[in-house]
Simulated scan of single mutants.
Amino acid sequence: MSVRARPISPHLQIYRWTVTMTMSILHRATGIANYAGMALFVIWLVAAAFGQDALMSVNFIFGSWFGQIVLFGFTWSLVHHMLGGLRHWVWDFAAMMEPGQREAMAWATIIGSVLITLLIWTVFVWAA
């Protein structure tokens, strides 16, 4: 009886890494991060319900340099996930599916999420 070698499934050693692969991972990661960010929002709402002292404590934490980084990241996560969802919505209509178009949409999602996040923070946080 001879033993035949089974075919090996292609893996990252064979495939060239693409921006659309990165976007797939980022879309899932931002979805998970949005759950954590919503927990922060719930903490803020509960603190507001408990009164001024609890709200001031939470606002102090969220206003610290670390809290601001976390909230900035949460804002980016929300925007990036939203734009990724819009990208998938466009694909539901079988539009923008050609290789060059897919990469262009992926880059537009990355760049757009950073620019929109900066715009939100510039207008609503840093200018206040």
Rank of each mutant, 00 (worst) to 15 (best):
N59E: 10
G73D: 07
S77Y: 02
F60N: 12
A49H: 11
A54K: 01
I25E: 07
M38W: 08
F74W: 14
N59T: 09
I32W: 09
V70E: 06
R28Y: 09
V58A: 02
G37I: 05
V19F: 05
G31R: 02
A36M: 08
A54P: 00
L40V: 03
N34C: 15
F72S: 12
Q52T: 11
M38R: 04
V58I: 15
L26T: 05
N34I: 15
T18P: 02
M21V: 07
T18L: 10
G37Q: 06
L26H: 04
L40M: 13
A39V: 14
L71Q: 10
V58E: 01
T18E: 15
N59Y: 01
D53T: 12
Y35F: 13
A29F: 15
V46N: 01
M23C: 05
L40W: 08
L71N: 06
A48K: 14
L78P: 01
A48L: 11
A39C: 05
G63H: 06
L26Y: 01
T30V: 10
T18F: 07
G73Q: 06
Q68W: 00
I69P: 02
G31C: 07
I69Q: 13
T22M: 12
L78N: 09
G51W: 06
I61K: 02
G67N: 08
M56G: 03
L40K: 00
F50S: 06
T22Q: 08
A29R: 09
G63I: 02
Q52D: 13
A36I: 14
V42S: 04
A39E: 01
S24D: 14
A47T: 03
W65D: 14
G73N: 13
S57E: 14
F72Q: 05
F62M: 11
F74M: 12
V46Y: 08
I61W: 11
V42A: 13
W76F: 15
L45D: 06
T22K: 05
I69D: 11
W65H: 13
A33I: 11
L45P: 02
G31K: 03
T75L: 12
M38K: 02
L71T: 07
S77E: 03
S77H: 04
A36T: 11
G67T: 08
Y35E: 04
W65F: 09
L78K: 02
Q52L: 10
R28Q: 10
F74V: 13
M56I: 10
S24I: 03
A47M: 03
I25T: 12
G31D: 02
H80Y: 07
S77P: 05
